[in-house]
Write a protein that binds this DNA or RNA. Structure first.
Length: 270
DNA sequence: AGTTTAACCTGGGTGC
DNA sequence: TGCACCCAGGTTAAAC
């Protein structure tokens, strides 16, 4: 599921139930996630009040006075609020019971997600070298242009590398390149400043739209309140291989770039 | 140092 | 029904 809009939607969904609330019991049912869940995680969270639920790229930070739980949803993870007495579902790997009587449940069939602990998450190796937030002030066409000089990777691979900008996954990279009219296989170092300005704008627009609509729903994504997102209906290129381009009606082409499915219009994207 | 590839997993869909 | 195979939102770490 989770690209940045889904993570942000999740953050907004869980935040009111976590911020200012106390965790009374953390249960790790299955510690074998992307990395083993540290044995010390319960002792860091038990009895602590959540001070903030923040997001950095696709990482969620559950902050206490002592540090933060670093949570990643991987490919198939989701967080939802539940009644702690309701029986756990298959793949509910982590559960945080709150003093309020709610509990937060982390479900992740593929176990590519993560629950880690850091006393200073900003300096954690996973967060330290991340590029700017696409919706923040440090991201624009100049930034992409500057970082891309001399780079031979395809522009799609380049914008999906979170050292360059965070939160642009396969769906939104595909969509943004379609919107900007840029061929996804074009060498990143040979894209002009004007086109990077266009692309940065497209990335911002696409992500903002998706967040406004509550995130894309694909397969196992479920919003924290259980309602699906509605962005899938507005995808212009992703998942539309061989279907007609919405601009020129020619069939969209599908290739693989960096082992990811890549759909684009040969006619509209140069 | 940049780029490519393999790996971590489960489950759903397809074709025989 | 069963089985073999392919595919999927992400990201690291090893290999070139």
């Amino acid at each position: 599921m989770p690209e940045l809009p889904e993570v942000e939607t999740t953050r907004r969904g869980i935040r009111p139930h976590l911020e200012g609330h106390r965790i009374v019991r953390l249960e790790v049912r299955e510690p074998r996630l992307r990395w083993p869940v540290p044995d010390s995680l319960p002792q860091h969270l038990n009895g602590q009040q959540i001070r903030a639920v923040d997001r950095r790229g696709k990482y969620l930070l559950l902050r206490t006075d002592e540090g933060a739980a670093i949570v990643h949803l991987g490919m198939s993870g989701s967080l939802r609020l539940a009644d702690p007495d309701a029986s756990a579902m298959k793949h509910d790997h982590v559960q945080a019971d709150l003093e309020s009587g709610f509990c937060l449940r982390f479900n992740d069939p593929r176990r590519f997600g993560a629950w880690l602990w850091s006393e200073n998450p900003e300096t954690h190796p996973l967060l330290r070298d991340l590029g700017p937030e696409p919706l923040g002030p440090d991201f624009d066409g100049e930034h992409l242009f500057r970082l891309s000089r001399g780079r031979k990777a395809p522009v799609k691979t380049f914008i999906m590398d979170h050292h360059n900008v965070v939160g642009v996954g396969n769906i939104y990279a595909t969509e943004a390149l379609f919107m900007a009219g840029i061929h996804p296989g074009r060498v990143a170092g040979r894209v002009s400043l004007a086109r990077y300005r266009n692309l940065a704008g497209a990335i911002r627009t696409i992500l903002s739209e998706a967040i406004d609509m509550g995130g894309t729903t694909l397969r196992d994504f479920i919003n924290t309140d259980g309602k699906p997102g509605y962005f899938k209906q507005s995808l212009r290129a992703y998942g539309r291989a061989n279907l007609a381009c919405i601009t020129c009606a020619k069939p969209l082409k599908s290739i693989r770039l960096g082992q990811r499915a890549t759909v684009f219009c040969v006619h509209c994207q140069r």
